[in-house]
């Protein structure tokens, strides 16, 4: 870990302004991801801005019937929130499928969206990795890629985004609210928030330098059955091989987002029209153009089969 300076921000706008003052500065929320990466010098921020005191830790209704989730609401609290459990069951279930109780007590809504990949080569600083060190190459391509992306990858990077929560947010059409160093605020639709790797896998989101997440808002509830199915080698405390988050209506229509398959939560709105025709059609549309490696090609049938199970569960 490199030495760094540290400050506590008092307001969101201050935090963003402070971040702009020191190039490479980072916000720290729960620290469950950032600190690990700093210890390994995968992240080397010279300055940390602690955002834990910003009072962004409440869940409140929005005027249009949705929910506004403060950036610092802990994953545990969000999953347990009555309104979330009642109206956004998918989100609650996705959160509870992630990490462990202890980690969820610390992990925040914003931090969870911004957690970095679990590609094993990203974690080994002796290995080339375009995401960690732009231009150094990608050790995962042609290497151990069982966990990695099957769709949306590039010649530069085939990592996945590991978040469960983000899959639910994507299916729910959440909006990420931010404040920029100049004090301006904006809302970024979740669909545009995470990026595909392209030539710049180190740039993972639409956030600009210094931009602080203040909240994530959910539109008004959709009803329907909310199912989150996370598939993994062991029963708990493992990242998804594949995850299916779905909101399904009695008439067979619905929404589906996937985890564990791409550099971002994977949703193809057009594919959802296929849902009434069953898992095969919907999975084919969702994963059209997939380019798996021999080691992770199993994810394609796995998505289809998991989706089939989810659709059956929704009917049952």
């Amino acid at each position: 870990m490199r030495p760094f300076s540290y400050e506590r921000a008092r307001t969101p706008a201050d935090a963003a302004a402070a971040a702009a003052r020191t190039p490479g500065a980072k916000f720290i929320a729960g620290g469950t991801n950032l600190l690990d990466l700093m210890k390994l010098e995968i992240e080397t921020p010279p300055h940390l801005i602690d955002v834990n005191g910003l009072s962004l830790d409440t869940v409140a209704p929005t005027p249009d019937g949705g929910l506004r989730i403060g950036a610092l609401v802990r994953n545990t609290d969000l999953a347990a929130d009555d309104r979330v459990r009642r109206d956004y069951g998918l989100l609650s279930r996705a959160l509870l499928a992630g990490a462990s109780g202890q980690l969820r007590n610390k992990a925040t809504t914003a931090g969870n969206l911004l957690q970095r990949t679990r590609c094993p080569y990203f974690y080994d600083t002796a290995q080339p990795c375009n995401k960690r060190q732009p231009g150094s190459g990608c050790a995962a391509i042609g290497g151990f890629s069982r966990q990695l992306a099957v769709i949306g990858g590039s010649e530069a990077c085939i990592a996945t985004h590991p978040s469960d929560m983000a899959v639910a947010m994507r299916a729910l059409d959440a909006t990420v609210e931010t404040v920029r160093p100049d004090g301006a605020t904006r809302g970024i639709p979740i669909a545009e928030f995470h990026r595909l790797p392209g030539d710049t896998p180190h740039i993972e989101t639409a956030l600009e330098p210094g931009e602080l997440i203040t909240a994530v808002t959910l539109p008004k509830p959709l009803g329907g059955r909310h199912i989150y199915r996370k598939v993994r080698d062991r029963a708990s405390y493992a990242f998804a091989l594949v995850a299916v988050g779905a909101i399904l209506q009695p008439d067979g229509s619905g929404r589906v987002a996937l985890g564990g398959v791409a550099h971002k939560p994977w949703r193809v709105e057009a594919a959802e029209a296929e849902l009434p025709r069953g898992a095969k059609a919907a999975a084919a549309a969702l994963l059209a153009g997939a380019k798996p490696t021999p080691e992770n090609a199993f994810k394609l049938p796995l998505v289809e089969r998991t989706l089939a199970a989810v659709l059956a569960q929704a009917k049952g």
């Binding site: 094993p120 080994d124 050790a139 290497g143 151990f144 062991r234 029963a235 708990s236 990242f239």
Partner: peptide, 28 residues
């Protein structure tokens, strides 16, 4: 679940931490 994944190009076990090398947890 247990398997050290060999990178046969550069010669090492890739999943060299407890996130990558899975052992049973209580729920298993």
């Amino acid at each position: 679940m247990e398997e050290l994944a060999v990178d046969t190009r550069s010669g090492f076990f890739v999943n060299h931490d407890l996130a990558g090398y899975e052992v049973p947890v209580h729920a298993d």
